[in-house]
Each structure stands twice: as C-alpha cells, then as structure tokens.
Amino acid sequence: MPHAELTQDDWIRSLELQPHPEGGWYREVYRSAESIPHPALPRRFTGARQFATSIYYLLGPGDFSALHRIRQDEIWHFYDGSRLVVQVIHPNGSTEELLLGRDLARGERPMAVVPAGSWFGARVADGDGYALMGCTVAPGFDFEDFELPTRAELIELFPQHGELIETLTR
C-alpha cells in the first residue's frame, strides 16, 4: 500500500522541528560523543569540536535560508519535497548554484557540499512547495562558527552580487 503524501506541517510536527535563526525549521539529530581537541583543529576554530553533527532542515513556501557561513564544509542531503536551490558565494567572489532534488536530468543531485568559509543561502525552487533536507557538518557544528551578516555587510563585500544578496537576506 502506498504511503500518503506528507505535508510540510506533518514533517515539522513528526520530526519536532523548531524555527532556525537563518530561516526555516530544524532539529539536531546527531552530535558525536567524541570530540577533536582544539590544538588538532585548524586555527579558524576557537575550541574543541565534536567529530560531526547532523540536523534535519526544512524550508517552506516563501521562506529561505539567509546567506551565512560556517568554518566547516556542510554536506546537504535531499530527503523529500520540491527542488532546493543553494546559492554559494565563494571567498574569491565567484558564485555557484547547487540544485538538490531527485530530477537528475535537470541537474539536481541528492547531495551537495558547501565548502568551508563560503557564504550560502537556500530557497525552494517551487514557490508553493517545501524541501526537507539533512545537513551534516564535520568537525561538528557550534554556533561559535556561525556568521549571519547584514545585507549591507554582504553588499559591501560583494557589490557585484547585489541582486542575489537582496534575495537571500532579511
């Protein structure tokens, strides 16, 4: 028997998702018990970090993940819903668009990586759809590694990407 189509609210309720500071909904589902000592990490880290962390992340209609960056690579996994577009501004100012979804013929992939130190944000490509994702970070995520700049700060850094920045900042 086929399963019923789940709605955005079904996912939020059943996975116990909470509002995320960058937009959307999330819940941490994994944080390794072991950690990497601070001296063993690159200088950009301010302390020890768990080996890895993972969250569920959901964006709904009209919502977006605001441009932000972290000090680690972030691996995005597509689970359900509509195609997701992750916009990346690399430290050198070049941009990249990552398409996550199931339609391989349209360039979508079930997994993509945002490199450490890149600014990135996301939105659902289908205006009235939602996208359920997973995000894995190694070394593990710590809010100490999270930067959420203002629109003005990003436009000052990357004036050539003003339109993209306007779209993915609040």
Results as ranks from 00 to 15, higher is better:
M1G: 13
A4Q: 10
L6M: 15
L6Q: 13
D9W: 06
D10I: 03
W11Q: 02
I12L: 02
R13E: 14
S14E: 12
L15K: 12
L15R: 15
P19A: 15
P21Y: 10
E22R: 02
E22W: 08
W25R: 01
S32N: 05
A33T: 11
H38N: 04
A40Q: 14
A40N: 05
L41G: 07
F45E: 05
G47S: 05
A48D: 15
A48N: 12
F51G: 02
T53Q: 07
S54Y: 14
Y57D: 00
L58I: 00
D63N: 10
A66T: 01
L67I: 07
L67F: 15
H68Y: 04
H68E: 04
R69K: 14
R69G: 00
Q72N: 06
Q72P: 00
D73I: 08
I75Y: 01
H77R: 03
F78R: 02
F78H: 06
Y79F: 12
R83L: 09
V85T: 09
V85F: 09
V85N: 12
V85W: 08
V86P: 01
Q87I: 12
V88F: 04
I89L: 11
H90T: 08
G93L: 08
G93M: 10
G93C: 07
E96F: 01
E97L: 11
L99K: 13
L99Q: 12
L100K: 08
G101I: 11
D103Y: 15
D103R: 15
R109F: 09
P110L: 08
M111V: 06
V113G: 03
P115F: 08
A116Q: 09
A116L: 07
G117E: 03
W119K: 02
F120S: 02
F120T: 02
F120I: 01
G121I: 11
A122H: 10
A122S: 05
V124F: 11
V124D: 01
D126E: 15
D128R: 13
G134L: 08
A138N: 02
A138M: 13
P139C: 10
P139L: 01
D142L: 03
F143N: 05
D145V: 07
D145K: 04
E147C: 05
L148E: 00
T150A: 07
T150G: 08
L154R: 00
L154G: 05
I155Y: 10
F158C: 01
F158R: 03
P159L: 05
Q160G: 09
E163G: 12
E163D: 15
E163N: 09
L164H: 04
E166T: 11
T167K: 14
T167Q: 07
T167D: 14
L168D: 05
R170Q: 11
